[in-house]
Design a binder for these strands. Structure first.
Lengths: 107, 107
DNA sequence: TCAATAATTCGAAACATGTCGAATAGTGAT
DNA sequence: ATCACTATTCGACATGTTTCGAATTATTGA
């Protein structure tokens, strides 16, 4: 992956997290992590679309749109499971984003 | 700081980093870090506004607007030094953003 | 096959953002 | 005081984003 591709990915990911509703959704899915540790690969939280939007004041189509954005940005995964669609965060996504702020990379 | 204030700060900061020009500016200022380590507090890179925009295809007023956004988001500091205005990144900003992705926080 | 549930797609309206050029303001030197 | 240099503010325009409701698709069970 070229440097400009990496930059594009970061801007896309940060844009996805720049909306309050999307940040809320992402944080709900991030809760697979034990405080003070890196995410446990073996126990990733999976939540279906409907449950994810629970208590958020948005209609289904808006929720769907936001999850699609998070997915397009590579921040969350989505997979149909019977009648529902399950969502989760791959731990690698978190470690890579953390490393963006921790290390110098070429400009 | 309340949880919703923290969320607002994060969305503001991610929004600031979601623009390609602003991400480029931020990364130029991030280069105070030694690869594989946390930023060195004693040697923060300071670059003036004009030099920061060097080689980016934007006019001065646009550059100024973007730096103001980064500053409003708390991502960069700005200080007049004679005829120029110097910009830099406080290392604490980087460690706090890295920790967002490394740890679980309350939803 | 039909109905119920879960979720997506589409189009439209309101709102926010990125960009520029022109005008303005601060600083230091002549 | 005036000039050159550095940077910001302002207004305008084009482009993107957020949101909703209505229509559509996918899946399962009766």
């Amino acid at each position: 992956m070229s440097n400009s591709d990496k930059s594009n990915l970061y801007t896309t990911q940060f844009k996805a997290l720049s909306n309050p509703h999307r940040l809320t959704l992402f944080r709900r899915l991030m809760s697979c992590c034990v405080p003070g540790t890196v995410c446990n690969t073996d126990e990733v939280t999976r939540i279906c679309v409907g449950d994810l939007g629970e208590g958020m004041n948005i209609v289904a189509s808006t929720l769907s749109h936001h999850l699609k954005e998070l997915n397009r940005a590579g921040l969350i995964q989505m997979e149909r499971e019977g009648k529902t669609i399950q969502c989760w965060v791959e731990p690698k996504v978190l470690t890579e984003l953390a490393s963006f702020f921790a290390f110098t990379e070429s400009k």
